[in-house]
């Protein structure tokens, strides 16, 4: 057993856990932050993406103890302070960037990391960045569109809605 402490969505969180506990398990089972989804358990689908010290990571591929002392951000902490959707969340809703929604938290977290790095990405850059996030439902078109729109770019030319 090991003691881990971290800041999650701005709040202190600490617990006694088995050394092998994954960050995704810690978030979901210890902190009950179930918005971080597990789609593949093996670092391939991106449903579990969170931010650790501002960087996007797949939380199923990191031990909770590796995040000891870190600032962790999950989907549950993304909304604005007054509870309204942030610009990326709002764009996913408005541009239909989701169907079953299982990939959505990971997509939103990846998108946030991308836009921090590159506030006005091209469509190709969005696509390249999302290679690690799988969506089985949407065919990606509306996800890409949502992210472009969230970056303040005109998406009317991106065909079908």
């Amino acid at each position: 057993m090991a003691q881990v402490s971290m800041t999650v969505n701005g709040r202190a969180a600490s617990a006694e856990i088995e050394g092998r506990t994954l960050l995704s398990t810690f978030l979901r089972e210890t902190l009950h932050l179930t918005g971080t989804h597990v789609g593949c358990d093996t670092s391939q689908c991106g449903a579990c993406v969170v931010h650790v010290n501002g960087e996007a990571v797949k939380s199923c591929t990191m031990l909770a103890s590796e995040a000891d002392g870190a600032e962790v951000a999950t989907i549950e902490g993304q909304a604005n302070a007054d509870g309204s959707l942030n610009v990326i969340q709002q764009a996913f809703q408005d541009h239909h960037g989701l169907q079953c929604g299982f990939c959505t938290p990971g997509m939103v977290m990846s998108a946030a990391a991308l836009l921090k790095e590159n506030p006005k990405p091209s469509e190709a850059e969005v696509r390249a960045y999302l290679e690690g996030n799988i969506c089985r439902c949407t065919g990606y078109h509306n996800i890409v569109k949502a992210i472009m729109a969230a970056s303040g770019q005109d998406v009317s030319a991106l065909a079908a809605e």
Binding site: E76, Q93, D94, L98, V108
Partner: peptide, 14 residues
């Protein structure tokens, strides 16, 4: 939009 869109984008959908 999908009825649960706001739940999905906030991680609140169960």
């Amino acid at each position: 939009p999908h009825d649960a869109a706001h739940l999905h984008v906030t991680g609140a959908a169960r």
